[in-house]
Amino acid sequence: MKSRVLLTIVIVSLSAIAAILPQKKNSSVQLSADEVLQGINLGTYKISSDQLTEVIINQDPSYMLIDLRSASEFEDYHFPGAINIPFDSLFTENWIMYIDQDLRNNIFYSNGGSLAGQALVLTRQRGFKNNFVLEGGLNEYFDKVVNAEEPPGIADAQEHKIYQRRKAAQQYFKGGEALPENDTEIMIKPIPVRKKKMVQGGCS
């Protein structure tokens, strides 16, 4: 009888300690393309237009916007604070330190969603963390936010609130040069590329 009580106490207190301990992530695995695609399908790596609006309004320093289009398109128009890394030079020496780092969250965007989506798959697959993609790209952002239409009066408060935020963001896009340039670039050290694989397992 006694040993049972003892075992119960030991296991319950061990699990209580486990519950209290902060969770660490020890993982150095390359994901397969399938796994990354699933992540995209589940929305794990997506930033919605309205989430981006918050980033822009708050000028959130923990995010970095990365424009993957060509330099000329970037010249024409880009998000405030964005930097331009054309898709084909993403993995070159000059830029790799921006996409393989632990300091900030990158948001990739292109005109539609596909170019940025590819960049996301490629970076995630290499085990680079902290990279995300703007859902629907610039096109959707303009449709939804910059050209946002006021919801009808009967819409609920939440919708009106979203509209207010969108309206607030529009100052960055309409009416002159309200684009604050990104003048505080942080130098980021590259992190060695990881090359481990998950083991096979289970009964399959």
Partner: peptide, 25 residues
């Protein structure tokens, strides 16, 4: 507990758990 320790050793040494039906396959 003994079985759990064997399972834990399997994860710690090889990264995978135990199995049986896979061998039959």
């Amino acid at each position: 507990v003994l079985l759990g320790l064997v399972l834990l050793a399997s994860f710690y040494l090889t990264g995978r758990g135990l199995g049986a039906s896979g061998a039959m396959k």
